[in-house]
């Protein structure tokens, strides 16, 4: 009898695992289906899907770094500010006649540096992530405004504007270079998360920090790297933001970190650490983007969108919780 129970238990575990993987896909599919029915003319078109993909790039790139941070049991509230800082630094450099590529690298470096500082505070100074990154959120926002002289920074047109262009000048690309960057990044960070020591250690720390320390993992150093990596990914997202705006804007992306965190959580990331995946995060980001796009198209007002997204975030976590409770 016990054997029977054990076997059905194993089957249950498998079903649950399967469900947790396809769950977000199902959600995404339902949303696409719903809007396709509501707006059959405009919504399910190739061009519209490209638009949505383009709109997802910024959140998705930042959310890849956030996935690592959340899996390690942390949080990063400074994402929005770092995106703004990146746009400002990039714009200033371009404006000073720096090569656009170097300017973009400079923007990414500025964001990475903020991640390095957060990582140092969290890893070595043992300041809890919420506080360290809350502080960094204010600092980076302030520095951006200061550098930009409290106004938008105009920069001459360069190929950087092309990154987020929906109709790239290189026709074979089909989608914007930004979407390609998102796809390639996703593949790299997925492999890194699943098969590299860095990824394994990130999971271990989030799952049980004491055990990780016991197993000889440099927990402090790892946290330092995880937040630095988060800053780096946010920097790339910031360059995309600059490309979309075509100016440096110190007031852009206020509160964007919440979208980024929501994408990770909808995709199955657990704020208590140890759980999450890049694929899930991407789907989470797409769920929100499709919702916004579909609501705009069907003329559903902004405030309803906000309510729906709020419900989806809570719903995703509630379903996850239910699944866990059944498991124990």
């Amino acid at each position: 009898m016990n054997d029977g129970n054990a076997k059905s238990g194993v089957v249950n575990v498998k079903i649950r695992k399967l469900f947790s993987i396809i769950g977000p896909f199902l959600g995404l599919g339902m949303i696409i289906l719903l809007f396709s029915v509501l707006e059959p003319e405009k919504f399910p078109t190739f061009f519209n899907f490209l638009t949505v993909a383009n709109q997802t790039v910024i959140v998705a790139l930042a959310a890849m770094g956030m996935t690592y941070i959340i899996i390690s049991g942390g949080i990063d509230l400074s994402v929005g500010s770092l995106i703004a800082l990146t746009t400002v630094v990039t714009a200033l450099l371009v404006d000073h006649g720096v090569n656009p590529f170097i300017a973009a690298v400079g923007g990414v470096l500025a964001s990475t540096l903020c991640g390095v500082v957060s990582g140092w505070l969290i890893g070595y100074m043992k300041i809890i992530p919420f506080i360290a990154t809350l502080g960094m959120m204010g600092i980076a926002r302030g520095v951006s405004k200061w550098m930009a002289g409290q106004q938008k920074v105009d920069a001459p047109m360069t190929w950087l504007w092309e990154l987020m262009s929906r109709s790239p000048s290189l026709k074979w690309m089909i989608v914007s270079p930004g979407v390609w960057i998102m796809i390639v990044s996703a593949v790299i960070v997925t492999v890194m998360l699943k098969y590299s020591l860095f990824g394994r250690y990130t999971f271990a720390i989030g799952s049980n920090e004491s055990t990780a320390r016991l197993c000889g993992i440099h927990v402090e150093r790892m946290k330092f790297f995880i937040y630095s990596f988060g800053g780096f990914m946010t920097g790339i997202a910031g360059v995309m933001q600059f490309s979309r705006l075509t100016v440096g804007d110190p007031t852009v992306a206020v509160g964007r970190e919440l979208d980024v965190i929501a994408a990770v959580v909808i995709g199955g990331g657990s704020l208590s650490g140890g759980e999450g995946s890049i694929l899930g995060t991407l789907i989470g980001a797409f769920i929100m983007a499709f919702l916004r796009n579909g609501c705009n198209m069907t003329g559903i007002p902004n405030y309803v969108q906000e309510i729906i997204i709020g419900i989806i975030i809570i719903g995703a976590v509630a379903i996850d919780k239910l699944r866990h409770n059944k498991a124990t």
């Binding site: 020591l197 394994r200 999971f203 271990a204 799952s207 049980n208 004491s210 055990t211 197993c215 000889g216």
Partner: peptide, 19 residues
Amino acid sequence: NEGLALECTIAVNITLSSL
């Protein structure tokens, strides 16, 4: 609380310190 990461798999727990 410390010796094992209970929510991780048996394989992860056995190999974590010698990855």
